[in-house]
Design a protein around this nucleic acid. Sequence first.
DNA 1: CTATGATCATCC
DNA 2: GGATGATCATAG
Length: 202
Amino acid sequence: MNKEIALQKLKTLEGQDLRKLAEKYNITVFKEGKTNKGWAGQTVERAIGLPLNSSQCPNAGSWELKLVSLKKKVDGTLVPKETMQITMINEKDVLERPFESSHLLSKLRSLVICGRIFVSKNEPESILYKVGTFDLKGELYKIVKTDYEDVRNAIRTRGFKSLTGHMGELVQPRTKGPGHGSISRAFYARKGFVAIILDIGT
DNA sequence: CTATGATCATCC
DNA sequence: GGATGATCATAG
């Protein structure tokens, strides 16, 4: 499937309640009182016919589907609820590759991003608010590149394990993984950056 | 087990 | 209230 087709399908999903779609596609949202944190993303992938897989490569060829949750402020403005995970950090990969050929850049340049409205952690309903694409360029490109270089530097001088979430201006390295002691890290987009990507709130 | 999909829980 | 670090379900 190419990006344009996927985009068209996603457009038809705009305004729909993802909770209902999740049920339709048999996606687990809750289990024993715990949340499947990836349910929203998996639901959308299923809905447009994308395979669920765990490869670091873009799952549909040359682009990447991401979903972020938005919350509504009292004045009605939608803002990113949380940071967004972009891609895993592979120590060796980051050390060897310049920003120009990093996974981080390739993901950012081919993003298809969807915003869903977060109601509460019980997820009584969740409307797909909007879908959009993003291309990293100009000023943003420079800042992200700087963040990436900082991470490389930190790995070189202090080691992979020294990476912490307070680094980075637009993207940050954070722990992310199955939990239970297995530690891996990923790049996350800070909220301000997410707002820019989604083109909301400006 | 570890990759992906992201959010939850806690600390400041 | 926001940021940081930890965690859950599913697939291979």
